[in-house]
Amino acid sequence: MPQMAPLNWVTLLAYFIIIFFMFNILNYFIFLYSPMKPLIKVNKNKVYWKW
């Protein structure tokens, strides 16, 4: 039935759009960034003066 072809295309389009969004959402939330180490080194050598 050729009259049903547009309905089939619309359902396939919705199906693939849903899969596309699910794939992107899962990739966004599954990927974990490693925490950044501080680049500035703090000098802890303190000099105490005796007067």
Rank of each mutant, 00 (worst) to 15 (best):
N43W: 09
V10P: 06
F31I: 15
P38Q: 01
I25E: 00
M4F: 15
K50H: 13
I30Q: 03
M36T: 13
Y15G: 14
F20W: 13
I19P: 00
M4K: 14
P35H: 06
M4Q: 12
V10C: 11
W49G: 14
T11G: 05
M4W: 10
P2E: 08
L39S: 02
Y33T: 02
L32A: 08
F16Q: 08
M36E: 11
N43R: 01
F20I: 09
N45Q: 07
Y28D: 03
W51M: 06
W49A: 14
V47Q: 05
N24Q: 14
M36Y: 08
S34N: 07
P6V: 02
L12E: 04
A14G: 10
N24H: 10
M1L: 15
S34E: 11
N45I: 14
F23K: 04
V10L: 09
A5H: 12
I25C: 04
N8I: 15
F21S: 00
L39V: 04
F16H: 01
Y48F: 11
L39Q: 00
K44F: 12
K50M: 13
L26Y: 12
L13Y: 08
A5P: 04
F20G: 05
F31R: 09
W9V: 11
Y48T: 15
F16S: 06
A14E: 03
F16A: 03
Y33R: 09
W49R: 14
F29L: 08
W51Y: 15
M4I: 15
N45Y: 14
V47M: 05
W51T: 07
M22T: 01
F31T: 13
I25Y: 07
L7D: 11
I19Q: 03
V10D: 14
F20Q: 13
F20V: 01
Y33V: 05
F20M: 06
S34R: 12
V10E: 11
T11S: 08
V42M: 01
K44V: 12
N43I: 04
L13F: 13
I30R: 00
L13I: 15
I18T: 06
N27A: 14
I40T: 09
M4V: 13
L39D: 02
Y28C: 03
L12V: 03
K37G: 06
N45H: 08
P6Y: 06
L39K: 00
P6R: 05
F20H: 06
L39F: 02
N8V: 15
P2K: 05
L26F: 13
L12M: 04
P6D: 03
T11D: 06
N24T: 06
P6S: 01
W49F: 15
L26Q: 07
P2N: 15
P35S: 10
P6I: 03
T11P: 05
A14D: 04
F21W: 07
W9D: 10
M22A: 09
P35R: 01
Y48Q: 14
I40G: 00
N24C: 14
L32I: 12
N24L: 13
S34I: 09
I19E: 02
I40W: 12
I40A: 00
Y48R: 06
Y15E: 07
L7T: 08
F23N: 11
I30D: 01
N45S: 02
N8P: 10
I25L: 09
P6K: 00
P6C: 01
I17C: 02
I19T: 05
N45C: 08
A5I: 11
F20K: 01
M1S: 15
Y33I: 03
W51D: 07
Y28H: 05
I40Y: 02
L12D: 07
I25T: 12
Y15V: 09
K46V: 10
